[in-house]
Each structure stands twice: as structure tokens, then as C-alpha cells.
């Protein structure tokens, strides 16, 4: 059995679905954030797989790798800001449970 694009796309789709399930089921804000990162990483796999399977002059399309470089950078910035917001939330509400964060400023 040869490796096909389908294999990689399916793994990526399954990983995305797992992340989606985590976002819907979990209540801890930190874990929800981790599942979001999982979904982002799964989408990255799709990008790399497409670039590897669509060769340009016999080489993978390196523009996809550059795009991935940017995505990883932005994800790192996003995680830093998101975690700072979670810490600020914990300071005021003393919890990271999303079901207990049900009021705005009061």
C-alpha cells in the first residue's frame, strides 16, 4: 500500500475533529485553548501535505513552508496573549471553568 494524499488528509481531519470535540466537551479554559492549538496544527498538516504532493519543478512548493513559518509565529504570539487573558480572568474570577464565567463586569 502506497502512501497517498488521502492518508495525510484523513489524519489531519481526524485530529481536527478531536480538537473540535475537546473544545465542545471540556470546561477548563486552558484545555479548551490547547484543543484550539491542536486544530491549528492539524490544519498545518494539510498545508504541508498539499505542498508535498503538488511538486513545482520536481520540488515541493516551498511557499507553503514559508506560510507555515508565519502561522507558527502568529500561533506563538496568540498563545502568549491568550494565556495572559486567562491569567487576568483567573485574577478576577478565581476560576478557569467556563461554566462559572457567566457574568460580565459587575
Amino acid at each position: 500500500m502506497d502512501l497517498t494524499l488521502n492518508h495525510f488528509l484523513f489524519v489531519s481531519g481526524a485530529l481536527f475533529a478531536i480538537g473540535l470535540a475537546g473544545v465542545l466537551v471540556r470546561r477548563n479554559l486552558l484545555v479548551i485553548f490547547m484543543c484550539l492549538e491542536l486544530m491549528l496544527a492539524a490544519a498545518n498538516l494539510t498545508l504541508v501535505a498539499f505542498s508535498r504532493f503538488n511538486l513545482v519543478d520536481g520540488q515541493p512548493a516551498y511557499d507553503a513552508h514559508v506560510l507555515l513559518f508565519f502561522i507558527i509565529t502568529v500561533a506563538a504570539a496568540e498563545v502568549a496573549v491568550g494565556l495572559a487573558i486567562i491569567v487576568a480572568l483567573f485574577r478576577t474570577k478565581e476560576t478557569t471553568d467556563v461554566t462559572k464565567v457567566n457574568t460580565m463586569k459587575y
Partner: peptide, 12 residues
């Protein structure tokens, strides 16, 4: 095109 197998990369 999704069903085709891994293409060989030409040496750069």
C-alpha cells in the same frame, strides 16, 4: 488527485 501516491522529489 487525492488518491495518487507520494511523488518523488527531484534532487535540487
Amino acid at each position: 488527485t487525492a488518491g495518487r501516491s507520494l511523488p518523488v522529489v527531484a534532487p535540487s
